[in-house]
Write a protein that binds this DNA or RNA. Structure first.
Lengths: 335, 335
DNA sequence: GCGTGACGTCGAAGCGCTTCGACGGCTGAA
DNA sequence: TTCAGCCGTCGAAGCGCTTCGACGTCACGC
């Protein structure tokens, strides 16, 4: 193994000079820097991560706690993880993957052993048991999702309330008067994951504001549930012409079910969704949707963390504004 | 921060004794060990990962290189990743997540900086450009998937050839005489990912052995392609009664398409698949399938790595035998 | 009764890097 | 001309841990 003293000798300077040339923390003359760089290249020098971490008390590693539970759409998690890793690399950091099951002990472990400099926690719930721990940890963290109280924390997510509102607004503008929300599976609400409830809040508030008749229906992630919900909706709200779907797996089955019940989309029924663009685009009838910007959230989360690591202040809450894309599934109400 | 010297002082022993008590690398008396453990608990001591890595030249971290490309089924990747993390934790290791995009330079970086002790590489291709690097690296690695030549490597995967054979065998035993394979998207073959071709080999070999008439059809991962393939199959092989599907996303659409064309599953047509059990079970007609054992592969991969790290020899190739589960989609041929 | 070796513990030497203080030389303002 | 202060570099200390060799003690065999 080639070490910094080898490089120093080869370049005819002291080890500290090599270190400073590498980190830029002190001025180094153009000429010396070039000699050092040449030596590094020739010897194929790579600083030892452990030694670096020990001396600088910075590991340049971030922890990412990823969920893997029913109710979370896996591709979104994956996309998010990739975006975190990619962005972290741009900031010269690596990413350590932890599972939700590791729990609080896992967080404490990687933080206390100085394995990581900072943490990103996904799938945060309203009264998440990890919150006190994250507040007390000596390392910065960023949460994806919003708990009930955000004091002492840094949170980021899509503004789901605004997303719910945007969907209703879009339908209202098209003249629809009776709308329904097909939501996440019941367990998501029971678990009190904030985003599901926020969508409901936005949906309801906007419906009231526009004077629409509305209803909310949690839905299991199976085609059978989709068919069942579709039947129920037609029975209970025969005048229904607008639907908001916040549940990726049932989006297509739901549209199929409606069409089998004799409703054309968007002729008789307009459908909007809150889901990743790829999902909205891959449905038989491309769906007008508010995007779930997993890539952007991941990127922003890492940026926030970097700011905190640099000692800069960051906002407690970051809500990304919804971005709606009109596709083939919505149309003015059939009068 | 509480360090090992604090623990030593508190327990009335030397730092080295604490270290040995922790690692078990030298005998420590029952009584001393207990005093040390008590001190650790009372002080909340956590060894510093960087210091440990520097002194022992072991970081206790594994690298996992995950793909994220079209053609790879995302949930499978995720399931695999979770299994790797979980198993690694059981062996007191953590997992660093790298993306495929980081490429060879990423592998070299984490290996050379001693950030990780060993590597797991997913989605290996027949002539993967990373192979020479992995062979030359001074750190052990395990590949998921089989390249053309496995010398100097350690590879593990489902035995896809045997899986293809098992499907055909199952159909042949049920009396089917004309079978077809609906395979992965064309780009998977072009990319020369071995597993797709192995399925074809097994499928073809078994069909020949049983004297069946057979054909192979790559298929895009979209419902439209599924419908198109279904039509084509009926046109070209009117006597078709058995289908093997190796393409998760089109499994359900394909069955739908066949039924819309007037073929009942399994009445007129028997369908088997090579896919994760969850996918096979979630289809409207649960599908007889060979499982894609991502969890087991992840677990075994880590175990192989641990053996290599301990200096024990491991087999160059590990092929997991296919496990077939009969479900509702296959039946004896309608005579 | 004494040598032998296993047991249990200690002290010291590093692992490879960063960083702090120091220092000589040089520039520019007074 | 002088001195303050910056620039560029060096040497040494030390980050917190593991590990090696050494040493005293004790049990056992001959």
């Amino acid at each position: 193994m080639v070490k910094i003293t080898d490089v120093a000798r080869h370049a005819g300077v002291s080890p500290s000079t090599v270190s400073y040339a590498l980190s830029g923390k002190r001025p180094i003359s153009q000429e010396t820097r070039q000699r050092v760089e040449a030596a590094i290249r020739e010897l194929g020098y790579r600083p030892h991560a452990g030694a670096r971490a020990l001396a600088s008390s910075r590991s340049n590693v971030l922890a990412l706690v990823a969920p893997l539970r029913t109710g979370t759409h896996v591709p979104v998690v994956m996309q998010f993880a990739v975006s975190v890793v990619t962005t972290a690399r741009e900031h010269d950091h690596d990413v350590l993957l932890l599972t939700q099951e590791e729990g609080e002990e896992g967080l404490r472990r990687v933080a206390d052993t100085a394995l990581v400099d900072a943490l990103i926690v996904m799938d945060v719930q309203l009264h998440d048991s990890r919150l006190p721990l994250l507040r007390s940890l000596d390392r910065p963290s960023v949460l994806i999702g919003f708990p009930a109280a955000t004091d002492g924390l840094t949170c980021i997510d899509l503004d789901f309330k605004a997303a719910g509102e945007a969907c209703v607004e879009h339908l209202a503008r098209l003249g629809h008067r009776v709308v329904a929300l097909v939501g996440s599976p019941p367990e998501v609400y029971v678990r009190q994951t904030a985003f599901a409830q926020r969508v409901v809040q936005g949906f309801t508030a906007a419906a009231d504001r526009y004077g629409l008749s509305s209803s909310v229906h949690p839905c299991e992630a199976s085609p059978a549930s989709a068919r069942q919900i579709a039947q129920q909706l037609l029975r209970e709200q025969p005048a229904l012409t607008g639907v908001v779907v916040h549940n990726e797996p049932v989006l297509e089955p739901l549209i199929d079910a409606f069409e089998q019940l004799g409703l054309r989309v968007p002729g008789d029924l307009s459908v909007t969704a809150i889901c990743p663009d790829e999902v909205a685009e891959s449905v038989r009838v491309p769906v007008t949707s508010v995007a779930l910007p997993s890539t952007e959230v991941g990127e922003r989360a890492v940026q926030l963390l970097m700011k905190k690591l640099a000692g800069n202040p960051v906002p407690q809450a970051t809500l990304l504004p919804p971005r709606m894309t009109e596709r083939a599934s919505t149309a003015p109400r059939n009068t």
